[in-house]
Design a protein around this nucleic acid. Structure first.
Lengths: 248, 248
DNA sequence: TAGTGGTCTAGACCACGGT
DNA sequence: CCGTGGTCTAGACCACTAG
């Protein structure tokens, strides 16, 4: 079942991306759109809220909505999944487990994952055949068994865990900064020790708010960037801090 | 004029932050909240959408909303303003213009800012007395004059430009990655050449979609991080990729 | 099956922008 | 001033979750 407002949003998005509404131009008014799509004004507002959340249009009280961009932003919850991002963008990618072991949770991990035993996995992932990412992931005890059954060359852990135990990575918090490569990082990525890496630390939970994993991912400089769109003075329908996507 | 849903959101947020709704617990149903606040269901939904956009609660059809976090996220459009972020977080900060000159726009800048002459400014900014940020900003020709009248030690360019010509930085697009410090960066920040910097490239526009500036900001590693909260499978009211804030 | 959130409607009033 | 988007209401139906 696809919602009406999604269909309207899709149609408007296509018009924007195709150039029918150039960047800087005004969108039709809500009343006009409501008439055109034979929908209530509220439904149209939901549709344009989608576009606003994608950073395609902006709005302010009293003036017509304005087209801000015409680049497809890949709406990424795939911030969690290297594989899903790489596939969606047509990249050749791979991955390999380097190390994997169970151990007791540290104090910090107890706070984030809920204590007990955890599973620590070190993965090296590549893009177009080049190693670009060192992933150090710590899984909560209750998913450890499922992760251990995955093949070492598993392409997408996210998808595999969904298929095997129906696990959905629903919410995430991410910290992004820069760090120097340590000896191990440097060795795995083929860069010099101390050279810049883009680090993404994240904690992921299920729909129920149950913590699944925390991870420390380090990208070789120049391989990817994070892209964010945001706006000020937006109302909550629009309040989005921005869509977020990887950038090759 | 403060909207009703904002007041409701404020009250619920306070309850969450104060621990009345612990992380992992369920929020009251929309119907209950509507009764309690004597508001229509739609208004209550707007209020909880605010909290969802802040990453405090999550939701899924059929189940009650769940409390995901209890940390205040400083809802940052202030991603644009080092001064506003630093002040809001109680940091001691400063800034100084190192270089400033007019020059013709490059080809790339023409595309982003609209051509003609531009104003290039190099600023060094500090936190707690330590230099942490090298800011290379290119202003569009139409704001150049206003920027040139600012004192070299101006704390907040964003605020100063609002006060002087009513300019509002409304929309931004940001690219975040890691780069090695070049000789100049290293010299200004007091780090070794080649050491990691966190880079934020941004383009900012007005409410009307008119480009104002593009900037290349480089943070010393360890001084700040970017924090993002996001969710999957969210509906557009909630679709926010996440609030975004600096992190000391 | 009952309760919950997601969608949609139709109408009202208000604050703001531009003329 | 008019047109626009922002807020709010009241009610309806549906899809989903959970017991």
């Amino acid at each position: 079942m696809v919602a009406r407002y999604e269909l309207i949003a899709d149609e408007l998005r296509d018009e924007i991306l195709s150039g029918a509404h150039p960047v800087g131009s005004q969108l039709p008014s809500e009343a006009e759109l409501a008439g055109r799509f034979r929908a209530a004004r509220g439904t149209v507002r939901q549709a344009v809220a989608v576009l606003a959340a994608e950073g395609l249009v902006g709005s302010r009280q009293g003036a017509r909505r304005i087209v801000l961009g015409n680049a497809r932003s890949q709406s990424f919850a795939e911030l969690h999944s290297f594989a899903q991002w790489a596939r969606a963008n047509g990249h050749r990618f791979g991955g390999q487990v380097i190390e994997q072991r169970r151990r007791p949770a540290s104090a910090a991990e107890c706070a984030r994952l809920g204590g007990g035993e955890v599973l620590e996995v070190l993965r090296l992932r590549s893009l177009e055949g080049e190693p670009v990412l060192v992933e150090r992931t710590v899984y909560a005890g209750w998913v450890a068994a499922a992760v251990e059954t995955l093949p070492p060359g598993c392409e997408s852990v996210t998808e595999a865990l969904y298929d095997s135990i129906g696990l959905v990575f629903a919410y995430g918090e991410h910290l992004i900064d820069a760090v120097p490569a340590n000896t191990r990082d440097a060795d795995l990525l083929g860069v010099r020790r101390g050279s810049p890496l883009l680090r993404q630390r994240r904690t992921t939970t299920t729909h129920e708010g149950r913590p699944v994993e925390t991870s420390d991912d380090r990208y070789r400089a120049g391989s990817v960037a994070f892209s964010i769109r945001n706006s000020i003075g937006a109302n909550p329908l629009v309040r989005q801090a921005g869509d977020l996507r990887f950038w090759p």
